[in-house]
């Protein structure tokens, strides 16, 4: 009986704690107006890329009678050089970009954070080795290397592409994270944790990383934006044969000479604007992330 009520109490406390945390989360999310707009935009893009395709038919059939139409009720953004609906192409071309951006961001951040913190905390030969490697790595021009790699490996699935992009960008992230860990490592509370014998794992995961979440989040968003540009660049150059993708759209518009016709402005601008807006929403969202992960703000004043 007693234990029953205790359990009930525990549960209700847990629920109220959860509610409380959620309210604080919401408050921090909405504290920064720009960040909140960015977050909403990201949600919008996810909706556009994953849900909208079920409602907007894929732009399969070409229609020569409808080349370069202006926006109308039927074709929200007009049509392209083959008479395909541009809005439908935007809707169906977002998924790859969104998935790849998140995936690359995650993998790159994971590599950067694990190598960076290990290197800073353990130090010694491992640290010297990784630092030297990173320095050398940073001198290699990334895009030409990507172009060469694209010739060697068939980059036809997004996971491989994300993995390669992430691995290629490890050095910058590694250096940023390592420097940050170094500065946190010197703080008194880390020394106190050492004195309490709390162990390396606890020190990295419970003492250091939680204080870097804002920093990590920002690096995550940076990695995402870099990945988008890299991917779009590759697709645009035709080095990566991915179908239905905003990059491909730009490529098509470009090769069709869309920039020379006034009528085709929507054809080339639609994917460009989509990419730019997506980038902007990521950058803006990072401001919200900063607020959410700032421990000073986490519990209110």
């Amino acid at each position: 009986m007693a234990s029953n009520t205790a359990a009930a109490n525990g549960l209700s406390r847990f629920l109220s704690d959860l509610g409380h945390s959620f309210r604080i989360f919401l408050r921090n999310l909405t504290r920064n107006k720009v960040g909140f707009v960015g977050t909403l935009m990201i949600l919008g893009f996810i909706f556009l890329a994953f849900i909208m395709p079920y409602f907007v038919p894929a732009p399969h059939k070409a229609d020569i009678t409808k080349i370069y139409e202006r926006p109308s009720r039927e074709h929200l953004l007009g049509t392209d050089s083959q008479g395909k609906d541009i809005w439908a192409q935007i809707v169906h071309g977002g998924r790859d970009i969104v998935v790849m951006a998140f995936l690359t961001g995650m993998i790159a951040t994971f590599i950067g954070v694990s190598l960076g913190s290990l290197s800073a905390v353990i130090g010694g030969p491992l640290d010297s080795f990784l630092t030297t490697l990173a320095d050398v790595w940073l001198t290699i021009p990334r895009f030409p290397l990507l172009a060469v790699l694209a010739g060697l490996i068939t980059l036809n699935n997004i996971i491989t592409l994300a993995l390669i992009l992430a691995v290629l960008s490890w050095a910058g992230l590694y250096r940023a994270i390592r420097a940050q860990v170094f500065s946190i490592k010197e703080r008194d509370y880390i020394e106190a944790a050492t004195a309490l014998g709390l162990g390396l794992r606890h020190i990295i995961f419970s003492e250091i990383l939680p204080n870097m979440m804002a920093y990590i989040a920002i690096n995550f968003t940076l990695a995402m934006t870099a990945a988008i540009y890299a991917q779009v660049g590759l697709v645009f150059l035709g080095l990566v044969p991915l179908t239905r993708n905003w990059g491909v759209m730009i490529n098509l518009a470009w090769t069709q000479g869309a920039i020379f016709f006034r009528d085709s402005i929507y054809f080339i601008m639609a994917p460009v604007v989509a990419i730019a807006l997506f980038q902007l929403s990521i950058v803006w969202m990072s401001r919200s992330l900063e607020e959410i992960f700032n421990p000073r703000l986490r519990a209110g004043r």
Partner: peptide, 26 residues
């Protein structure tokens, strides 16, 4: 050891309870 600077000696992302229970549990 007890440090000098009260603003640097506690981990800002943990609550008092977390700070004190970590070594007990560990």
């Amino acid at each position: 050891i007890i440090h000098q600077d009260p603003y640097a000696s506690l981990n800002p992302s943990h609550t008092v309870h977390q700070i004190l229970s970590a070594p007990l549990l560990h």
